[in-house]
Amino acid sequence: MARYESLLDAVGGTPLVGLPRLSPSPDVRLWAKLEDRNPTGSIKDRPVLAMIEEAERSGALTPGCTILEPTSGNTGIALAMAAKLKGYGLVCVMPENTSAERKQLLQAYGARIVFSPAAGGSNQAVARAKELAEQNPDWVMLYQYGNAANAGAHYSGTGPELLKDLPTITHFVAGLGTTGTLVGTGRYLREHKPDVQVVAAEPRYGELVYGLRNLDEGFVPELYDETVLTGRYSVGSYDALRRTRQLLEVEGIFAGISTGAILHAALAVAEKAVARGEAADIAFVVADAGWKYLSTGAYAGTLDEASARLDGHLWA
């Protein structure tokens, strides 16, 4: 179906595209789920719409309310669009080391941004948002890290779409942030095909982002369910950029940097299948397109230069 009553109705139903040039063999195939085809250009439209609708159903969110959320970007942009169409205010708490495009997009939608310190990454944004929630009890924090509707959107959307389009799926690879995509999609897939491998690609940032004062400031999202996953890779900015460029050069897909990290893990999984002589249908997520990262220089100059420029930035 290509006709929708409004932009909000056009969330999900994204294409799954084969990658014949990147796939290592006819028996080990890679498939890209193009989540940049959502209304605000990222996979986050799915959880955001689900969290808002659930809050409306429960009565937590009523007309004229202000929504508060810690986000490094895409969730905020999705929220800003939905809040605009549904008549809510929006305050985003965002680490100061995210790309200029994200800030500009949020401002264009009329969202208010509260910046949190770069050191400590999104941990600090989460902590700041929790403080603001206490100080402003009438604001509604959807809290993507612990909101069951986040994983639920993938359990009822992303998972069934993948299984329908690729019944032979053997592996699902996605980025690990709130953990909602992996936990929700992975749970659905494994309930229907218990042998499906669910593999996380986690961004490894520059040291600044890990600048916690002590280990007890660490953070594991409440949604995280380790039992759904079968593997987890840590991918640095150099490899993420290398794969982002490779995806563009070889298959023509202009993706954001986190997708490069996901592709890196998907290719590692593919190589293992080839080495074992096993057939595999590996689906991975293209979380967003590259537009929002042009100002970071990710697509220009040498990989070493681009990687150095990204050091200290949150690119996923």
């Binding site: 986000t71 890290y145 942030g177 916690l212 400031e217 660490g218 999202p221 840590s234």
Partner: peptide, 10 residues
């Protein structure tokens, strides 16, 4: 072997 503290994404 890489050791890292757990930090938030998203």
């Amino acid at each position: 072997v890489t050791i890292l503290p757990a930090v938030a994404g998203g």
